[in-house]
C-alpha cells in the first residue's frame, strides 16, 4: 500500500503505517492525520513530537500506559492522562498518534 502526498509516493503497511521511518515529514503527518480525521493542533504536535523523540531515544513506540506516564513526567499531569490523550487521538493515543508520527505500530498493540 502507499499514500501520495504532493506528488510523492510513500509506502505504508496494510494499516497505513509508514514503512520507512525516513519518509516522515510534517506534510506527510498532516496527510495521515486528515485520513484519520484528526485536525492537528499544537497539542497534537506536542504528542507527535514527543513520540518521535521517544522513538529516537529508545527505538520503540511506547505502549499507551508507558506513553501516558512518560508524557505526565515531561509535560505535567494535566496532559499525562488517558482522557486528555484520547480526546486528541480518539482511536488510541499510541496507535493513532504513532501513525501520524510515522512510527511503527506500538509493540503489543492489537
Amino acid at each position: 500500500m502507499a499514500i501520495e502526498v504532493n506528488g510523492k509516493t510513500y509506502e505504508t503497511d496494510e494499516e497505513g503505517y509508514l514503512v520507512n521511518l525516513g519518509d516522515w515529514s510534517e506534510e506527510v503527518a498532516n496527510f495521515i492525520a486528515r485520513q484519520e480525521n484528526v485536525e492537528m493542533t499544537p497539542n497534537h504536535w506536542e504528542v507527535v513530537n514527543f513520540l518521535r523523540d521517544y522513538y529516537n531515544e529508545f527505538q520503540i513506540a511506547p505502549a499507551v500506559r508507558v506513553l501516558t506516564k512518560a508524557i505526565g513526567k515531561k509535560l505535567g499531569p494535566e496532559k499525562g492522562n488517558s482522557q486528555y490523550l484520547y480526546e486528541l487521538f480518539p482511536y488510541g493515543p499510541a496507535k493513532q498518534a504513532c501513525k501520524i508520527a510515522g512510527l511503527p505500530k506500538p509493540t503489543g498493540c492489537v
Partner: peptide, 14 residues
Amino acid sequence: VKNFQPTYRALEDY
C-alpha cells in the same frame, strides 16, 4: 540490522 540496545533503557518505563 536495527540496533535494539536503546530499548533496554526503556524497560524502566515499563
